[in-house]
Simulated assay, not measured.
Amino acid sequence: MGEQPLVALLGPVRAGNAFEETVERLLQVIKLGVVAPGGKLPPERELAVQLGISRVTLREAIRALQEAGYLDVRRGRYGGAFVVYEPPLPGRGDLREVVRRMGPGELDDALTFRMAIECGAAQVLATTGLTEGRREVLRRRLADVNDAAPADYRRLDTAFHLAIAELTGSALLASAAADARLRVTDLLNAIPVLGPNIDHAAAQHAAMVAAILDGDPEAARRAVVEHLEGTAALLRAFLA
């Protein structure tokens, strides 16, 4: 079990659309902040094996993302593919524009999908006999988001939420959680990081972790519901 949600996101792609799916997988990693701005993707050889593709296909995908401004490829001993994409700072009207691009009904659908996936992941994890190592990963993800500077908050919040699904050991569930988060990432990035909301989220995150570590799936579900309902309320407030 990796400590970051790279295993599920970078699993084998289908051969028929290898280039397109590789670009999609790498964009997920970049836009979700799994690899932070300035951070480096795994080595080419390792990444090609994880994705089950040739290094030629991988290089084509990386070159496309470099041309699109998401990656910077550096050569030499300390080279590699470095993430240069950073989410834009939220501005007035950004959230409405994101919702407009999503289309009618898609916002509610995305929030419903996220609720179902994250509640299920927390419940499953609470019924899993977690090793001390996995328990420590969860505690560390919680500490990371609690200690995050405003500029890093969304990225580390994402890492915390994805860790819950990743730690279940189900690659399908972890992939679904990443998909659900990606559908609302642009929305969340369009909301300013507000102190009171971060305080509420910290208490809710702590309740989620406590319920999971106590092996209480119903309490874990309730904590996730409370947290995600708060996020939905904040979105609606900025859209009003």
Rank of each mutant, 00 (worst) to 15 (best):
D147C: 09
D147L: 13
D147S: 14
A148E: 11
A148K: 12
A149T: 12
A149V: 13
P150G: 04
P150W: 11
P150F: 09
D152V: 10
R154G: 01
R154Y: 01
R154I: 01
R154Q: 07
R154A: 02
R155T: 07
L156S: 09
L156G: 03
L156W: 08
L156V: 12
L156P: 06
L156R: 13
A159P: 01
A159S: 13
F160T: 09
H161L: 05
H161T: 00
L162T: 09
L162Y: 02
A163S: 15
A163D: 11
A163H: 06
I164C: 10
I164P: 08
A165R: 04
E166G: 06
E166R: 11
T168P: 03
S170I: 14
S170E: 14
A171S: 15
A171T: 15
L172S: 14
L172K: 05
A174F: 12
A174L: 13
S175L: 11
A176S: 14
A176Y: 12
A177S: 14
A177H: 04
A178N: 03
A178K: 03
A178I: 05
D179T: 14
R181K: 14
R181L: 12
L182F: 02
R183D: 05
V184G: 01
T185V: 08
T185F: 00
T185Q: 09
D186I: 01
L187A: 08
L188Y: 05
L188C: 03
N189H: 11
A190E: 10
I191N: 07
I191M: 05
P192K: 10
